[in-house]
Design a protein around this nucleic acid. Structure first.
Length: 455
RNA sequence: UCCUCUGUAGCUCAGCGGUAGAGCGGGUGGCUGUUAACCACUAGGUCGUUGGUUCGAUCCCAACCGGAGGAGCCA
């Protein structure tokens, strides 16, 4: 089957002449003597306008029954459009109906609510919005690999089924086998011990960084948290670079460079789709993305942030106090009202951070950092890892963890330990930031949230 | 897990203590180089479920179920 993609046709300076195009009908306007078909093949946001004169081969069988949602094959000439609104149009010489759409095709030409679109997740990529979202998602995945590969990072596939529990990362899904309706436990466990779906590849990533220097992971992660918000999903994708011979400063530099790289690439490679978001989803999107691309980010220590929030005069629902976690409202104030740009907060009190983060010399804080962006909040969380054997052991004990569960992790500090650091970036949150789409369910093809695992 | 909002036609919503309406979508016909086309006609609903109050409930009350938003936790 040979076809020309719509994106190739519409980008032409001169007519490509005779082409065959296949796609889905977005809308059709009939008159007595001819029909206009808006054809979309997903290769770009724009449709190709097809002009089909009554009487051409396939008009009765191909064009007339082709209502919204139908798939068609059109052969014809690309000619300059007589009408307003498009440069090129396809003057059809032959139309073939590939697949009719039944009368109850749910996508209308008019806008639908996001809730309804979620209920038809198998059809929503055929809409302008979701087509654009998922083209951008694909491009950003590609760009992430490019960013790291160009910098000499090695891509590591950390396991999805894991026996390790990356402490502090939340509730986990158990992986079990069944005997009929009975879950096999104890001696019967498939792996001989309890296993889970991974909540993070970080600990395994550290082992590879302590061999290949600079590595990254990029894969699905799972959290069994019962959280109902627009920013949480039970299954999501995460990018986790880990670097040997690296401290917190270089870690923050990398996180910021990565955000800038991705935003810059999106602005260039996804201009049409971002323009659509800017018009219909978030009027300030392009301005904000250009700002992020061109300006430097703010950096502030946790202690400075607490002082700043206390002195702000702003009324918060939750108290600002050294030693307490920054609440969403506090993060939002910093990044949306005070600095009005992405902000990295670092050096958090050790009590509110997990065991693997490196203790600072002040004895009170750890070398942790969160990169906050306007509208989303935390998009990156990272730290320099504790590389000193005795300090790590003490941390495990302080957190009430059994060292025997982490023997392989502790080994890294026994055999040629090195300063190292890394971070985790939520892929869907990045996409929310880049597209302006407000709900995480709308930037992942088939979202899994508590109580919902359709499709 | 907690708090708030919400559930009427395929979709988006209006409505009212006396058993329902619009726009879009669908169907039929017409018309026009149209472009969220236009015009006319037409078919669609046990008003989320179960109880209760009432002469009478889609409307008031309760519980449950579903959806959404926020908090916490995090990415």
């Amino acid at each position: 089957m040979f076809r020309t993609r719509v994106v190739e046709i519409l980008g032409n300076e001169t007519s490509p002449g005779k082409v065959t195009v296949m796609g889905w009908v977005r809308t059709k306007r009939d008159s007595k003597a001819f029909s206009f078909l808006e054809l979309n093949d997903g290769s770009c946001l724009a449709n190709l306008q097809v002009v089909a004169d009554a009487g051409i081969p396939g008009y009765e069988e191909g064009v007339m029954p082709a209502r919204t949602g139908a798939s068609v094959k059109v052969e014809g000439m690309i000619v300059p459009s007589q009408g307003q609104g498009q440069r090129w149009e396809l003057q059809a010489v032959k139309v073939e109906l590939l697949g009719a759409a039944e009368e109850d095709y749910p996508l209308q030409k008019k806008g639908h609510s996001m809730e309804f679109m979620r209920s038809i997740a198998h059809l929503r990529p055929r809409s302008n919005l979701f087509g654009a979202v998922f083209r951008v998602r694909s491009r950003m995945a590609y760009s992430i690999h490019r960013f790291f590969q160009e910098r000499g990072f090695v891509y590591v596939h950390t396991p999805i089924i894991t026996a390790s529990d990356c402490e502090g990362a939340g509730e986990m899904f158990r992986v079990v086998t069944m005997d009929g309706e009975v879950v096999k436990t104890g001696e019967e466990e498939f792996f001989g011990k309890p296993t889970y779906l991974t909540v993070s590849g970080q600990l395994e990533g550290e082992t590879f960084a302590c061999a290949l220097s600079d590595i990254y992971t990029f894969g699905p992660t799972f959290r069994a948290e019962n959280s109902h918000t627009s920013r949480h999903a039970s299954e999501f994708w995460m990018i986790e670079p880990e670097m040997a011979f690296c401290d917190l400063l270089a870690d923050m530099d990398l996180a910021e460079a990565m955000i800038k790289f991705l935003v810059s690439d999106a602005l260039e490679a996804c201009a049409e789709d971002l323009g659509f978001f800017n018009q219909f989803v978030d009027k300030g999107l392009l301005e904000r993305l250009k700002f992020v691309r061109d300006r430097s980010f703010e950096r502030i220590t946790y202690t400075e942030a607490v002082d700043l929030l206390k002195a702000s005069g702003e009324k918060f629902e939750y108290p600002v106090e050294y030693g307490l976690n920054l609440q969403s409202e506090h993060e939002r104030y910093l990044t949306e009202k005070h600095f009005r740009c992405p902000t990295t907060v670092y050096n958090y009190p050790k009590e509110i951070k997990p065991f693997y983060m490196r203790k600072n010399d002040d004895g009170k804080t750890v070398a942790a950092m969160d990169l906050l962006v306007p509208g989303i909040g935390e998009i990156v969380g990272g730290s320099q890892r504790e590389e000193r054997l005795e300090v790590l052991r003490a941390n495990l004990a302080e957190h009430g963890l059994d060292e025997s569960h982490y023997d392989w992790y502790v080994d890294l500090r026994r055999y040629g330990t090195v300063p190292h650091a890394g971070f985790g970036l939520g892929f869907e949150r990045l996409l929310m930031f880049v597209t302006g789409v407000a709900n995480i369910r709308d930037v992942i093809p088939f979202p899994r949230t508590p109580g919902a695992a359709d499709f």
